[in-house]
Every structure is written in structure tokens, then in C-alpha cells.
Amino acid sequence: MNRFQPFQLFLILLSGIVLLLIIGPLVGMFVATSPAQFFESSRDPEVQSSIGLTLWVSMAATLFFALGGIPLAYLLARKDFAAKRLVLGIIDLPIVIPHSAAGIAVLGAVSRDSYVGQLGSMIGLDFVGAPAGIALAMAFVSIPFLINAARDGFLSVPVRLEQAALNLGASPARVFFTISLPLAWRNIVSGLILMFARGMSEFGAVVIVAYHPMIAPVMIWERFGSFGLNYARPVAVLFIIVSLVFFIILRLLARSKKDA
């Protein structure tokens, strides 16, 4: 009876501790939130609009930056060039630097004194304290997830298939859209979902670029700072539930697309 060997039990015990670390606080938070508190928060217009803002800005940031992120991932998968390792390192940079520092960096780049900020205000686009700035901060910290997933996807497409398509008379653009992209699509969608989820949950970088309008993570922090744990908790629970529902829907959509 292998499964009852002492070493196996030891492994199970250690695994259990790690799972408990993740599940424990979350379950605790759900249990500590009374239905009355929960429904009150969910009816709070401030909370509703902040969750709505978080979702659409993260979605917009993901889709907008995917337009450049996916081609970059394709180049990184298919082309060899001198500074490729450097570029790969740069892409992972947002994952390793503190997010408050990332926020400072983004703010510096888009503040009203910067070229980007001035250019933006010329066309009526404000970054600081505005959805555009939030989107930028979210994208800054989350785009590595998309690029890396998409790059893995393109790497898994045999070069042979692209060569065959070219040999059949297709232009490189047609090959990209009819062969490479569809075959890497699963990884790309999974990268898009990760980027969306990571952007949505970002606090550090966003709070520096835009305290207002308030996204949900900032609102949770603000409620905690001003009113304490009992007021922050229901908002956190609500946001987690909404995020989970979105996450599950997107996963299901991605899967049904694959099976179709």
C-alpha cells in the first residue's frame, strides 16, 4: 500500500500547508463577511462603479496592447537578432521590479511635464488621474504575461507549416493570419486572460498614477485606511467574486472556441 508510506504522508502534509496558506485567508474572509454587509457593499454605487472601471480599463488595456504585444511575441519566436536576450530580459523587467517603482516610472513618463503627457493633452488625452493612465500602469505590469505566453504559442507552431504556406503562394502576412496565429491561439488566449487578470488586480503601480478614479484594489485599500478591516472586507469579497466569475467565463469561452 504505497500511499500510506511515511514519506508520502510527509509530502502530503507539506502540500497541505501550502494549500492552506492560499485557501485559509480567503475562506476566512468569506466567512467573516455577513450577507448583510456583502449586499450593502454590492449596492454601493461607488463600489459598483469602481469594479466596473477596473474591469473595462483592464480589458481595454489588454486588447490595445495585444495589438503590439502579439507581433512582438511572433518576432521573438521566429527571428534571431543581436540583442534578443536583452529584449527578452527587458520584457520580464516589470515582473521583477517593485510595482510602486513601476508606478513611479509610468508616472514620470506620462506626467504633464513629459513629452508623452504634453502630446496627450494636445489631443485631449489625460493620463494622470485618468483611465488612460490606469490602463498604462496596468499594461506595464501585466504585458509580460501576454508576450511570454504568446511567444510560447508561436514557438510551438512548426516552422515547416509556415514554409509550406509560403510555398503554396501565401504572403508572409497571410501566413501569419491563417497559419501562425490560429495555431498559437490557445496560448495567446491564455496570455490575454492572464494579462487581463493581472492588470485588474494591480494596485501599486495604479495608485501612483491615478488615485482617482478609483479602481477596486485602490478602493479596498482606501476603505481599509479610512474605516478599518470590517469595511474593506465586503468590498474585497465582492471584487474577488466578480473577478472569479469573469475569469471562469473567459476560460470557458476560450475552451469552447478551441473545441469548435
Partner: peptide
Amino acid sequence: KIQKRPFGLVFQDLAIFPH
């Protein structure tokens, strides 16, 4: 360019588009 050449190649591994 590959796509402008007058050669149609049937690869040994066939390279049929799986999707």
C-alpha cells in the same frame, strides 16, 4: 521570394495544416 517561385514542394513530413 519563396511565394514567387515556380516550385510546388510536397514535404516529406507533408506539413498538412492541422487546424
